[in-house]
């Protein structure tokens, strides 16, 4: 297991890169997923269709395919960026479909009377969603949303695999490949690196869940 100690710096940089990918993707996925969830419950049929189409298309496509389509497709239409941002974009788009569905389950858990009361005092659809429904929906969606984000942290390995260097997965490849270290100890290190991220994420979610839980 010396490989762990000797390469601690490398592993640590891997953890930080994976954290960066996850943070940016997570924020992107939360924003886009919330918008799509709003579409899916909106009173406007075309918007509902866009939301449903998005979820169907993205959720049913393997992440690696999404990533390759972005990495090879965007330069075709003259959009160029560092590969890191292609990776982040792909992971955010992919995860947004799952965020959308988790949020929608939460929206459906809020009684229709809440939205009716909001509409009855003259709030618009957007205000009803933002002021009344979503704040209550977030309470029920913390556990399923947590699943989505922890899965996303691990999915960042695929972002590494398709070419974003320096993340935890890439560190493993580098150590076992070009540096010729034994696979199992290296991979144990990689797994521990992901735990460094996912266990605090789980604790944070537990804290959030207690914090937003109010009697209804």
């Amino acid at each position: 297991m010396d490989v762990l100690v000797e390469n601690l710096g490398l592993y640590w940089r891997g953890v930080l890169t994976t954290l960066q990918i996850s943070l940016y993707s997570g924020i992107g996925a939360l924003v886009l997923g919330t918008i799509m969830a709003g579409f899916r419950v909106s009173p406007v049929p075309p918007l509902r269709a866009v939301g449903a189409g998005w979820v169907t298309a993205v959720r049913n496509t393997p992440l690696s395919v999404v990533l390759f389509m972005i990495a090879f497709g965007l330069p075709e239409i003259a959009i160029n960026a560092p590969f890191f941002w292609f990776g982040v974009t792909g992971l955010a788009l992919y995860t947004s479909a799952f965020v959308c569905e988790a949020l929608r389950s939460g929206i459906n858990s809020v009684s229709t009377g809440q939205a009716e009361a909001a509409r009855a005092i003259g709030l618009t659809f957007g205000q009803t969603l933002g002021e009344v429904v979503l704040p209550q929906a977030f309470r029920t969606v913390v556990p399923p949303l947590g699943n989505v984000f922890i899965a996303m942290i691990k999915n960042s390995a695929i972002v590494g695999a398709v070419g974003v260097g320096g993340d935890l997965y890439s560190v493993g490849v580098q150590l076992t490949g070009s540096l010729g270290e034994a696979a199992i100890p290296v991979l144990i290190g990689v797994a521990l690196g992901y735990l460094v991220l996912t266990i605090p994420a789980g604790l944070l979610l537990g804290y959030l869940e207690r914090k937003v839980a109010i009697a209804r």
Binding site: S111, G113, A117, A118, A120, Q136, R139, I214, R216
Partner: peptide
Amino acid sequence: VFQSFNLFAH
């Protein structure tokens, strides 16, 4: 005014 009040729970 609704039968089930529908006050905003949060």
